[in-house]
């Protein structure tokens, strides 16, 4: 099962509350959909500058693989305080560790109560991914 210390979106992002901040990333399912295990197929990731305000469902960045550009969607509302610049130079981090080292942005959340949003816990997200596999 995927980590249950965070919540998941239908567009395959995760969000985790850590003290006063929220951390976003994308899931293993999203990474595999883009590169099918070939980490070299990920070619570019565009993340926002600190200070940018994002709303739940809004695009906060983009990731490019050899054959597709995919929007990255914000799971919750808040203000960006840091982007993971390591990812922009080392996209293989997303394949190796999407849950920790592969974090994308840190956010000052409007609220830490994730129940305000339409998000899934790990068992629900696992079931959601299983239903999407072909």
């Amino acid at each position: 099962m995927r980590p249950n210390d965070r919540r998941y979106t239908k567009t395959h992002e995760w969000v985790k509350i850590d003290g006063e901040i929220a951390i976003f990333g994308i899931t293993d399912f999203a990474v595999n959909a883009l590169c099918s295990g070939n980490e070299g197929d990920l070619v570019y990731c565009d993340l926002p500058e600190p200070g940018r305000l994002v709303n739940a469902g809004e695009t906060f960045g983009e990731i490019e693989s050899v054959k597709a550009v995919e929007d990255l969607n914000s799971p919750i509302d808040g203000e960006v305080i840091e982007s993971n610049t390591v990812i922009e130079e080392h996209l293989e981090v997303l394949s190796k560790d999407p849950w920790n080292a592969g974090w994308m942005i840190k956010l000052k959340p409007r609220t830490k109560n994730l129940a305000e949003y339409e998000l899934m816990d790990a068992p629900s997200y696992d079931a959601y991914c299983a239903a999407q596999k072909h």
Binding site: K10, T11, K67, A68, V69, E70, D71, N73
Partner: peptide
């Protein structure tokens, strides 16, 4: 790339995808 369509060893079709909110 490996998934491109080619004809006589030359690229015939160039393709790309954008994925946005489902």
């Amino acid at each position: 790339s490996a998934l491109d369509l080619v004809l006589d060893g030359r690229k015939l079709v160039g393709s790309a995808q954008r994925r946005r909110r489902g």
